[in-house]
Design a protein around this nucleic acid. Structure first.
Lengths: 225, 225
DNA sequence: ACAGTATTCAAGCATGTCCTTGACGAGGTC
DNA sequence: GACCTCGTCAAGGACATGCTTGAATACTGT
């Protein structure tokens, strides 16, 4: 006990888990799966890869233990193995944001200029929801809303927002949220709303962080009008 | 903004950070550096690799931003870029412990049977230190004790423990701690102490976790007898 | 049992990673 | 200034990874 070979093998196992996240495509998959389960074809579409290659990456994640599967009819749904995986993913993002040399530039290139985009913190939003003077809009794809969302939120996927503008009360501030700090959906939604003269901000991070903070969530289809 | 190419580049950057940990040797380095700064030759010795290869891995960690350096005379000291990195490392260990298929076996092969090894939690130990009815022994190498240790602990590196047994009071329980949950030093120390008829337990994790929990720490050489 | 479809597997190529050896470079010391 | 030490860099060989294409598998639903 305590010998070199066994130690190397143990730490190699930690390395294997890290290797599962050591690919941009797999990182994207984890980011999507942190919203809830999805099947292979959807995931392939999300990450812009062939189904075969997506399946290959999902297998890598499954082999490392980060995701598990469930069959429903002819589809196979993948989901994160547990909340710990989402926490690992959040820790990885944190370290990258703090220490990766070019992350700011890359984020700016993908997200655009956020300096004029007002954000709202989780606790403040929870408070405003309790007092009822805010409309919370989930701008992720509908499937992710169904898998779980902030209690009381309305589902309006970002590409349907322009068409549904008038269903939002004009005199109440809107808070949009999406997948997390590196997701563009809420940014685009807030920009659109402000161009139309609405008061709008985005939640600083996304639904997975809200859920992990043990704030109120719901799941299932939107309640009828 | 929001295009495929920029998104891929951003997530590739997250992947690069994960890749820095995607090697058992680099994981070992991070585990050691979580104790405090060390120079290349020491690190090479710790991970059982050539100096050249250790330098290569340290460069990989530095390029990803996980470690930084400081020159002192002819030596170069490496340290973790921040506490976030230690948190990422802890999150990685958690996920591996929960989901890696063979981690239990690998840990057992390296650490030996822990079923008869009693452990003590951080909060309980903090309480017992306040009431003063426990001796806390830091069994890591002396350099790591100097870089930082639990307030009030004594430094007795594990391979010097047998020779210093009589300096420990016989009627007080001993709690040994070391680098973390996958470190053998405290296990070996507790086993030795119990064979010699002492009451002894190990802290569940190690010094980095104690410090991150904002419990009392000190640094510097042991106070004179 | 059969056809249909979602997913996985296999082969193949280009590219990247790990570790070794030997030479080089930056700083300190005499 | 010459020498010494610590650390880094470069080249090279064995091996692993990422993506594509095309075929195989494992279910479902009738």
């Amino acid at each position: 006990m305590g010998d070199r070979q066994a130690k190397d093998a143990l730490y190699d196992a930690f390395g294997e888990v890290a290797k599962a996240l050591a690919s941009g495509r797999r990182a994207e998959l984890v980011d999507v799966l942190a919203q809830g389960e999805r099947h292979v074809e959807e995931l392939a579409d999300e990450i812009g890869q062939s189904v075969a290659n997506t399946s290959f990456h999902l297998r890598a994640l499954a082999t490392a233990g980060l995701v598990t599967t469930r069959r429903e009819g002819t589809r196979i749904y993948y989901r994160l193995a547990s909340d710990r995986v989402a926490e690992l993913w959040a820790a990885l993002r944190d370290v990258a944001a703090a220490h990766h040399e070019h992350l700011d530039d890359l984020a700016a290139a993908y997200l655009g200029d956020r300096s004029r985009l007002e954000q709202v913190g989780r606790e403040e939003l929870a408070e405003r929801i309790r007092s009822g003077d805010v409309v919370v809009v989930d701008v992720r794809p509908a499937a992710e809303f169904v898998a779980g969302h902030i209690a009381g939120a309305r589902s309006i996927p970002v590409d349907e927002l322009a068409a549904n503008l008038r269903s939002l009360p004009a005199d109440v501030e809107v808070v949009a949220y999406c997948r997390g700090p590196y997701c563009v959906f809420a940014d685009d939604a807030v920009r659109l709303l402000r161009r139309r003269g609405r008061r709008a901000r985005r939640l600083v991070d996304g639904f997975p962080e809200w859920r992990r903070a043990a704030l109120p969530v719901e799941a299932g289809v939107p309640s009828p009008p």
